[in-house]
Structures are given as C-alpha cells and as structure tokens.
Simulated assay, not measured.
Amino acid sequence: MYIKKILIGIALLGLVVAAYFSYFVYTTMFVSNTAFNNERAYIYVSSNDTYDSVREQLEPLLKDIDKFDALAKQKKYVSNIKAGRFEITKGMNNNAIINSIRSRNLPLTISFNNQESLEKLAGRVAQQIEADSLSLLTAMTDSGFLSQNNFSEATALGMYIPNSYEFFWNSSAETFRSRMLKEYNRFWSDSRKRKAKAIGFSQDEVIALASIVYEESKQASEQPRIAGVYMNRLKIGMPLQADPTLKFAAYKLPQYKNTIIKRVLNSHKSINSPYNTYTNRGLPPGLIAMPDISAIDAVLNYEKHNYLYFVADAQRLGYHKFSKTLSEHNVKAREYHAYLNSQGINK
C-alpha cells in the first residue's frame, strides 16, 4: 500500500512536471512576444554581428527576452546569425521571430540622384545599405576595375545611372558596384547605342555632355533644346562656353573650397583646367556631375535648331531664353545680369 502511494505520487509529480514543461514550451514558442504598437518593426543585422548585438536590438521590441533567449539557444540561432534586414510583425511569437530573422532577409529600395562626385555618391549609398562610405568609395575608384570596364577616374561617376534599385541591406561595396555595372550595361540598350553612334559620340561623351545639360537646366522639357545648342557649337568648332564647367573647375581649387558660386565672373574664365570650356574646345575629359536620365536622353535626342546661345530667364527662373545671334543674346544677357544685380548676387 505504501509503495502504491509512492508510485501515485511520482506519477502525479511527473504529470505536474510535464504540464509545466508543456506550458513553458507553449509560452516560449507560440505565445505572442512583441511589445511594440506599430504593425511591424525591422532589425538590421550586420555581417559581423554576434547574438548579443542582435539581442540588443530585440530587447526593446519583446515582452520577455529571456524566453526568446531560451528558444534561440534551443534552435541554435545564437551560433548561426544571419546578416540582413528582417521584419518582425506585431503579435509574432518567438518561433516565428526566429524563423524570420534566420531566413527571411528582406530587400529594400535604395535611390540616388544629383550626386556631384563619387565621394558624395558613396556617402548617399552608405546611408541605405550596410557598406560604409569608405569601402564603397574604394570599390568605385579601384583602378583595376575601372580599366577592365573601360572607365577612367574622370568617367567613373557615369557608370552610376540615377534611379531606384532593389538591394539586400547587407550588400557589400563590391556587390553594389557590380550591380551598378550591370544596370549601366542594361541602360545602354541597342537603341541608345545606335543613337550615340549616329551623333558620333561614345557613351562617356554622351554622359559628359548630359552632365552639362543637366547642370544648366533641371527642366526635362528644355533639356533637348539646350543639348541642341551645344551640339551646334561643337559642329562649328565653337567652344562650349558652359558656365557649369567653370564652377566644376573652380571647386577643385583651394580658394573656392566650401564656397558657393552663384554668378560666373570673367575671373573664372581664366582658370587653368581641362574642364574650362571657354579656353578648351570640345567636350571636357569627363562628366561634371551625375546627369538625370532625362538629360542623357536629351543629348541622344537633341533638338535640331539654329540656336547658338541661351541665358537664364529672369521672368521664369529655371528656364532659359534662346538666341541665334550674339547681338540678340547680349540683349537678353544684359536683362539677366540686371536681375542678378538687383538681387545683390555679384559672385
């Protein structure tokens, strides 16, 4: 009788232990453990992150980090961290959270435009993916990569076509660069290549001129006409005389560091630089900024006309007035200079 009571007691204890274990497993794996009110939250796991780093991001998002720890150890996540951008949705349990951050790396959309240099492009991209600006710039300026793909230091920025692209957050600098090369080659379709050939330009030359057109006007409707002016000048051997190239050349000089040139002066026209299109005929060695796609297509489809000159329109800022003769242009230029004077813009 005594032995029977002992056996019953052991059985009851076993049931209690089993019930507790079942409850613990259930609450650890299948009960909601999120503590945030938004519909979703994201964590970003770097390539060299440890479990402690991931845990630090998760702790404010979860109700019970200890139960998450227990399951993470059981499922061996603590020793098998995956890099990437991961989503946690409101109401998720620990099992679903671990499955998500272990195998569901979500892509994101990155974008860039109007970048004046590779340095600024690297900084812009570094704000959106794991790779830092230094590693990106190093990859972008790698001489072996550039020469292998027919780019130079002067034309390298032209490989990056401004747009929106889908990437994994943990993409490396080399991955970003390689993808951009593919996008560049895709952008230069057979149709665009034929158009470049028809006007006697290489792809680099198209982008170089497009960068000037884009710096002259952000108005897509006006860009083909401006491109036509420059094409007319090139055809007759006239210097481009593009003010944006003077600014580009000036900003390379120490005395113009951390300054903004609002008005091109005669002193700028004497700067000794291959980018000075007042003293040098033809196109500059490379692009002066990242042109928008509209400006590239404006060069490839430039407007056929007889204009040789244009000047900013003081009555419609952002637009220009066009002229066929220098005398006509000088009248319009004086109008704009009077406007600049009235605004106190003298440098």
Rank of each mutant, 00 (worst) to 15 (best):
Y77L: 09
R85T: 05
I43K: 09
P107W: 05
D69H: 12
Y44H: 09
I88C: 03
R104A: 13
L108F: 06
A72E: 07
S46Y: 08
M29I: 08
N37I: 13
Y44W: 03
A72P: 12
N99R: 07
T50C: 15
F30N: 07
S103G: 00
I98H: 02
N38M: 12
L58R: 03
S100C: 07
Q57D: 15
F21P: 08
L61D: 11
F86T: 15
S46I: 08
I43R: 05
I98S: 03
A19G: 05
Y42C: 15
N94Y: 05
T28G: 06
N48D: 00
E59W: 15
M92L: 15
I88H: 08
E56Y: 10
Y23I: 09
L58P: 04
G91R: 07
I81C: 02
S53A: 14
R40Y: 11
N80Y: 00
L15K: 13
K63N: 08
R102L: 06
L106Q: 13
V31W: 08
S22N: 02
I65Q: 13
F24H: 02
Q57P: 10
V54N: 09
D52Q: 15
E87V: 06
E56V: 14
N95Q: 10
A19S: 00
S53K: 13
L108P: 03
D49P: 01
M92E: 14
R85K: 12
M29A: 06
T28F: 01
I43L: 07
E39Y: 13
I97F: 02
D49W: 01
S47I: 01
K76S: 06
M92K: 15
R40T: 11
T28M: 07
N94M: 02
E56L: 13
N48Q: 06
K76R: 13
K73I: 13
V31C: 06
A18E: 12
V17F: 01
K75R: 11
Y23C: 09
Y51H: 14
L106G: 04
F36R: 10
R40S: 10
V25R: 10
L62T: 02
V17T: 07
P60W: 12
